[in-house]
Design a protein around this nucleic acid. Structure first.
Lengths: 315, 315
DNA sequence: ACGTCGGACGAAATTTTCCTTCATCGCATT
DNA sequence: AATGCGATGAAGGAAAATTTCGTCCGACGT
C-alpha cells in the first residue's frame, strides 16, 4: 500500500520490534503468560497451553509424545506451543513446569479465583475484585520486559516532546501518564481525539517520543497516530496486552500488559487498566529517577501550586 | 563371598529394581540424601552428587553429557548416580533439580518493602511499585465500609441521573466511573471543570446521586458542587482518604480509601488512585448486579458498537 | 611376586525423546 | 467453484538418554 513507501523512507528500523522475543523463561508467571498469549494461539495450541497451565505437575511427567496424546494433538504442535511461550523447546518448558509444580506444591495457596456472579454479596465482590487486581499486578510485574522498559524510559527522559495516545478506557491511562510527566517538567500531551492526535503526531521528530496505549493492540484510532509518529522519526512505545498486535509494527519498544480472564460482570477493561497503570507508573518513576535534578524541584513546585486549592484547615 | 553366590543366582542385569528402591523422588531433601548416600558411593559418583547438590539450578540446565563433562566423569556414571539417588534415570533427577532450583529461588525473594530511591534499578522499581499497590488494595478492601457501599450502590442503581466530581488525578477516576456507568445504561457524567460542575449540580433532585472523589477531602473545587447537589436534595457520596475531611459534611455516604506512605518519588496520587479505582469498581459491579436485566444487554451493545473500531484481523 | 577376581568406569551401541520438514487438509475469501 | 493461506500432523532426522559391554585398577589369595 501507500504507507509502505512512506514508512520505508523513515529510518532503517530495528527489525527486532517485529519478532516477539520478549519472553524470559520465568516459571512463576506461566499462567499469566498463557493468558496473554492465548488469543494469538491456534485452537490446538490453546488446548496444549491450557492443559499445561492447568496441571503443571502432571505435564512435567510427560514427554512430548505423551503430552501430544493427552491433548489430542501432534508433537509438532506441542513444540510450537512451547516456543510461543518463550522457551527454546519442549524440554525447557518441561523444566519450567517442574519448577512451577514444585513451587505450588510447597504450600502456595491455590488462590481462590472464582468469577464474580450476579448474586454475590458485596463483601465477596470486594474481596474478589481486590484479589483479581492483586493477581494482575503480580502477573504484570513478572512479565514486564525490563530491557524494553529501560529503553522506553531513556527515550522519554530525553524527549523534546512526548505524545500519548489512548482511546476509551485507555485514554484515562494516557492522561494519567501525561499529567505525571508534565509534573516533572516534561512536555507531554495526551490525545484522545484521533484527528488531533494524528495532526500532532506529524509534528514529532527524531528524539521525540510517542506512546500508544491499547489493550487490544488493534485500535485503529491509536495505531494511526503512532504510525504517523513512527514515520516521522519519533521513538515509539506501545503499551498493549497483545504483543503480536498490529500496533507493535510501528513500535520501537513494546511493553506488555497482562490480561486476566474476564467475565460478564468484570470487563477486560478493569484488569487491563490496572496493568497499564502499573506500567506507566514504572515509566514515570524511571523517568523521574533519570531526570532527578529537574524532576524533584518540579514536583515540589506543582505541589505548592496546588496547596491553595484546598480548604485551609490542615492537620 | 557368600553374597556373591546369592547375587549371581538373581538375574543377569535388571538388578536395578532390587537394591535402591527406598528413595521417593522428593526434591526438598536432596542435599540430605546426598549426604546419607555418599559413603556408599564410588568416588566419581560422589563428585557427581556433590556437584548436583551444590548447584541444582546450574545442573538442571545441563544434559547428561554436559554434567558428565563438568564432573569429569562419563554419562554412565551420571545415570548411575541418579539411580542411586532414587530416580528412574537422569531425566527425572533433572526434573527434580529444576523444581528444587525454583523453590529456593522463590524462597530467596526477600520481599522488597523499602522506599523507592533515586538509584534503584528498574527491576526494583517494578517490584516495589507492584508490592505497594498490592498492599494498597489489601488495605482498601479491608477498610471498606460495606454498609456505606451497599447504600451507595442502591442509590446509584435507582438514580435518574448521576454526577461525578473529581479534579486532578481524581478526575481520571471520576471519568472512569462515569464511563462505566454509561456503559450499563445509566445517565452519568464526570465533571472536571468546577464551574460546570456546580452548574450541573444545581439541576440534581431527590433521587439523583452526586459522587465526589477527593483524596485530601479538602479540595474546594470538588466540595462545592457536592454541596450544591446536597443542598438540592440529591443523594451524595464521598470517596475520600480523609473520612474526617470537610467533604464528608455534605456526604450522605462516605467511602474511605486508604493511603500508603508516600515518598519523594512516589506521590500520594499513585496509591490513592489505586484505592479509588478499587472502590469505584466495587460500586460499578454492585450497580451492575442490581440492574442486571438492563446492564447485561447494554454491556453487549457497547461491546458490539466498538468492534468496528478495531482493525479487522481477528482470530 | 604373580594370578585371579570383583567392581568401577567410560566408549560405543541402542533406545528414547525431541525437533524439523513437508505434504495435507480445512477454512475463508474472491 | 477456485484459490490461497494457515493450521495441523506424519514421517524422518538430530539429539539426548540409557544400556551394554569391554577395559582397567586395586585387592586378595596363593
Amino acid at each position: 500500500m501507500k504507507e509502505n513507501f512512506v514508512r520505508r523512507v523513515g529510518r532503517p528500523r530495528p527489525v527486532a520490534a517485529v519478532a516477539p522475543r520478549p519472553a524470559p523463561p520465568e516459571p512463576g508467571a506461566l499462567a499469566a503468560k498463557v493468558r496473554t498469549m492465548a488469543p494469538s494461539m491456534t485452537r490446538s495450541m490453546q488446548r496444549v497451553a491450557e492443559t499445561v497451565a492447568g496441571d503443571p505437575a502432571g505435564c512435567a511427567a510427560l514427554t512430548v509424545t505423551g503430552l501430544a496424546e493427552r491433548t489430542g494433538t501432534s508433537e509438532a504442535t506441542v513444540v510450537r506451543t512451547a516456543r510461543l511461550l518463550g522457551y527454546p523447546g519442549y524440554r525447557d518448558l518441561r523444566l519450567a513446569l517442574a519448577g512451577l509444580a514444585a513451587q505450588q506444591a510447597s504450600g502456595a495457596a491455590p488462590a481462590v479465583t472464582a468469577d464474580i456472579s450476579v448474586d454475590d454479596p458485596l463483601s465477596d465482590v470486594v474481596a474478589k475484585l481486590a484479589q483479581d487486581e492483586r493477581q494482575t499486578l503480580t502477573d504484570t510485574a513478572g512479565a514486564l520486559d525490563l530491557a524494553q522498559l529501560e529503553a522506553s524510559v531513556s527515550a522519554l527522559a530525553s524527549a523534546r516532546r512526548i505524545d500519548v495516545y489512548g482511546i476509551g478506557a485507555s485514554s484515562l491511562v494516557a492522561q494519567d501518564l501525561a499529567q505525571k510527566l508534565l509534573r516533572i517538567g516534561l512536555v507531554a500531551h495526551a490525545h484522545a481525539d484521533p484527528h488531533l492526535a494524528v495532526t500532532n503526531a506529524v509534528q514529532l521528530r527524531t528524539g521525540d517520543v510517542a506512546v500508544a496505549i491499547t489493550h487490544s493492540g488493534r485500535t485503529v484510532d491509536v495505531i494511526e497516530p503512532l504510525q504517523a509518529a513512527f514515520d516521522h522519526g519519533a521513538t515509539t512505545v506501545a503499551i498493549t496486552g497483545r504483543p503480536d498486535g498490529e500496533v507493535t509494527q510501528y513500535a520501537d519498544h513494546v511493553l506488555t500488559t497482562s490480561t486476566a480472564r474476564e467475565s460478564e460482570l468484570r470487563p477486560a477493561a478493569m484488569s487491563s487498566r490496572t496493568s497499564q497503570l502499573l506500567v506507566i507508573d514504572c515509566l514515570f518513576i524511571g523517568v523521574a529517577q533519570r531526570t532527578y535534578e529537574s524532576a524533584a524541584p518540579a514536583l515540589h513546585a506543582s505541589y505548592e501550586a496546588l496547596a491553595h486549592r484546598h480548604s485551609p484547615r490542615e492537620r
